[in-house]
Design a protein around this nucleic acid. Structure first.
Length: 104
DNA sequence: CATTTGACGCTCT
DNA sequence: TAGAGCGCCAAAT
């Protein structure tokens, strides 16, 4: 997850596939839930495949924190937690050269 | 050991 | 675009 460049987004399934656990998106969410905050890993760059922040009462507001962190990185996030995943989706295969370019 | 739940994802309608 | 159903694995009860 630390490989995700700033201003980019990745999905739970993407992270799972990246570590060789295809289809185990839930386990990624499980790990993120166990993640102590504040954390050194950019957990806020991980969203669901729907392009929305996965909100849950168990997060105790960390979902809203995620919105704030993403906005701070230049990613427009809707009040409902929706964001343009198509444009900011990170490609693990690429050497993260597009971190500075326009996602367009 | 069986059941329920969870920061997910795809398919069908 | 929105909703329901199923699959997935691990944890909690």
């Amino acid at each position: 997850m630390a490989q995700i460049p700033a201003g980019r987004l990745a999905t739970y399934g993407q992270i799972a596939e990246l570590i060789g656990a295809f289809g185990c998106a839930r386990q990624v969410g499980w790990a993120l839930r166990r993640l102590p905050l504040p954390s050194a890993v950019p957990w806020h760059r991980v969203v669901n495949a729907q392009g929305r922040i996965s909100m849950s009462p168990g997060r105790e507001g960390s979902d809203w924190m995620q919105i704030a962190l993403l906005r701070a990185e230049g990613i427009p996030v809707d009040a409902a937690g929706r964001l343009p995943l198509r444009r900011y989706l990170w490609n693990p295969a690429l050497p993260s050269v597009d971190a500075s370019g326009d996602p367009g």
